[in-house]
């Protein structure tokens, strides 16, 4: 398990190995795509910020998430 703060809420996310997803044993760190899949957000138009920095979509497959990371996942909504 990995502990993240997503949109201000603590979330415990299972690591790929624990969910049976293909993963090299020495790459146990989660990437954004795996996080989005876990949260049912994969394929949605969203943007992600990690610890205050934008994560470009091109980096979603790079393992980068570590315990305690703060993530913001946003969408466009109606507004003036």
């Amino acid at each position: 398990m990995i502990q993240l703060i997503v949109n201000g809420q603590p979330q415990r996310i299972p690591l790929p190995q624990e969910t049976g997803m293909a993963s090299k044993p020495d790459h146990q760190i989660l990437n954004i795509t795996q996080l989005l899949e876990h949260m049912g957000l994969h394929g949605k138009r969203i943007a992600v910020e990690r610890n205050g920095e934008i994560v470009p979509r091109s980096k979603f497959d790079q393992p980068m998430l570590a315990d305690g990371d703060r993530l913001e996942i946003v969408v466009a909504v109606g507004g003036g």
Partner: peptide, 12 residues
């Protein structure tokens, strides 16, 4: 449009 946090755990 406004930019807001996604609702977590809601109907995907």
């Amino acid at each position: 449009v406004a930019i807001r946090r996604t609702n977590l755990g809601q109907n995907p």
